[in-house]
Structure formats: C-alpha cells, structure tokens
Amino acid sequence: MFDITTSGELLAEFMAEARDQRFDAAGRFHGPFPSGAPAIFASQAARMGVRVAYAGRVGDDGFGDLIVARLRDDGIDVGAVQRDPERPTGTAFVSYQADGSRRFIFNLAHSAAGQQTLDDTQLARLAACRYCHVMGSSLSSPAAIAIVRRLVARVRENGGQISFDPNVRPELVERPGVREALLALVAGCDIFLPSDADLEWLAAPGEGMDASVARLMAEHRMSLLVLKRAAAGCVAYRDGERLEVPGLHVEEVDPTGAGDCFGGALIAALAAGRDLRQALRLANAAGAHAVTVLGPMEGCSDLATLKRRLDAAGDDQ
C-alpha cells in the first residue's frame, strides 16, 4: 500500500531570466526544469520518506527522460507514468512581472500530458493508498477530470482519504466541466488546502474568511481545512479549533511550487503520524525553503533540511 498517490500533468518548464520579459521578443530562459503542480507535491512528500505513487504521461523524448528520472530519483513509484511515442512532453514557459505576477504559455492539451489514460490494473494499484491528493490544475479537460473521478471514487471505496488543493486558475475555470469538478472535489474531500485567493473564489457575497470556512466545513465532509497564506504561514481549522502557525522569514528567489511543497510536506507529515501542529510547522518550512531556490521542483526538501530551517528560525519543532 502507498501512503500517498496523485495523478496529473507532467511538464518541462522554462523560466524567463529577466523580469517583465516578453514572449513576443527574443530572450533568455532557464531550463528545462521538471515540473507540474502534482509532481512538485509528490516530490516534496517522497523526499520526506513516505511511499508515493504517481500517474501521468510524458513524451518519449529528452524532456520525458528528465521528468521520469527526477520522480524516480526522489523515490516516487512511476509504474503508472506512461511514455507517449507520438506526442511530445508538455511544456510551460513562465515570465515574472515586476508586480510579482506571472505570465504563462502552456502546451498541455496537445502534448503527451493531454493523452493520459488509466487502465483498471493501474487504477487498482494506485487506489491502494492512505491519501489521494488532487490538484485543481489537473482538472484541465473532460478526460483528465474522468481519471481523477475514477481514482478518487476507488480510493474512497478502499477507505482512503482525499486531500484537495484547488489551485484555482482563471484560465482553466471557464473550460467545460472544470468549475463543476472543482466544486465537487471541495464537497467531497477530507482535507482541503485553499489559498486566500481560492477561498475568495468560493466565498458567498459579503462573506468573511472565517465565515466562509465555517460554511464550507458545515456543508461538506471535510474534517480539516488548512488555509495557505504564503509568507504569513497558515491557519488550520478542525473540530471547531482554529490553529494559526506563523511562516518563516526567508529571501525569496522563486515562488513557483511553494504551495505545492507546503501541501506535500503537510500530507507526508500526517501520513507519518505527526500531530497537526508539527505537520503545519513542517509544511511552512517546506514552503519557505522552496522559494529560496530557482526552479519548480528544485526547492523540494527532505526532513533534515526542514528541521534545520525550523531550528534556524527558533522553532521548537
């Protein structure tokens, strides 16, 4: 049995060297970096020593080799990572703006990532897990949504828990079926990991943050909601308890993947039997460490690194 399974996009990412670099003019890019929100999550979780399995699809090319090697080197089971002989590995180009925002060009729908399948044998193997983690970015097409729904349903049948990071992206929400799939997972997950922006998207008109949390937890099955607040840390809600854990102060180099590392560390810590406060501290440390390194998966960290981060911050973890 796996501790954690996840499924979704795998891609090679290229990062613009200069701020405000345009896509319609020549410029320098760093990369390729192995990437994909669920892959960053999986890498962080696996580096903390838990058993992680991944389902996805890459091309039979150098970018695919790069990604599969990274997943395997991090200890992730790649038995359900397919190689597509006809389509290339998905790619993403990202440019950072002076105001802190990012601009992207993705090639996913027409790449190997957009052709992922999951047969019954792979489904049964992946569903034998304690936690199944879903990223909202993986709900990018009707086919991808169908894979996630099948996996979630089977994990639920087996008694596993569902964790969900909605990662709401405006460019995805208006695609057919995406909004409905997001809301269905909010309603059906056990552990919900929204950001401030995600919670605002879900809020009723005029509803404050705490009121939104109370309503979501009252209306749905989730037993734990953890609000990710970037450098400010996080706030967890469980059984009527509100637990706030401050973030760590670090020098930011690249924010890409910080929230995914936060989630990977949190679920890995819970899978390892740590109490909630300990898990939240480790998650904060993982998110903080991630922003100090250039590259989406380059900032994933092991338990020893996270403990050094916490010790340096004066945390008693």
Rank of each mutant, 00 (worst) to 15 (best):
Q122P: 09
K228H: 03
G188N: 13
S195Q: 00
T292G: 05
P170W: 13
R22M: 00
M48P: 04
H289P: 11
N167D: 10
S141P: 05
S301G: 08
G314W: 09
P32H: 08
R238G: 05
S138Y: 09
L71M: 01
D24Q: 04
L10W: 01
W201R: 13
D311M: 11
G206H: 00
Q115T: 15
E17D: 14
G177A: 14
S43I: 13
C234D: 03
H30M: 02
A25T: 09
D74N: 11
R87A: 08
A53N: 00
N107S: 10
A271L: 04
V155Q: 05
A98V: 08
G287P: 15
G314E: 02
D196H: 12
G257I: 06
E219R: 12
M222D: 02
A304V: 10
R83T: 09
V81G: 07
L172Q: 10
A286E: 11
D315A: 12
Q97Y: 06
A268S: 07
A271H: 10
E207V: 10
A112L: 00
L248K: 02
D198C: 01
F63D: 03
F2P: 03
L11F: 06
T6I: 11
A128Q: 07
A80M: 15
E207W: 09
Q278P: 05
F14A: 03
S140L: 05
A18W: 08
A218H: 14
M222Q: 14
G233Q: 11
L202C: 10
A109K: 01
A285E: 11
S140I: 07
A112V: 00
L276Q: 03
M15P: 00
G56D: 02
G64R: 03
G264A: 03
G31E: 02
T117P: 09
G264M: 03
S137P: 09
G299Q: 09
P88I: 04
D60S: 06
C300W: 12
E200L: 14
V148S: 06
F104A: 00
S223G: 07
H249T: 15
L11S: 05
A153Y: 14
G208S: 10
D311E: 14
A279P: 05
H110D: 08
V155T: 08
C129T: 15
M209Y: 05
L108F: 08
E244H: 07
L248M: 05
L71A: 02
D120N: 15
A203W: 15
Q317E: 13
P246E: 07
C261I: 14
P205E: 03
A124T: 04
R102M: 05
D315Y: 01
Q44R: 11
G75Q: 00
V94P: 02
G114C: 06
A236G: 05
L182T: 09
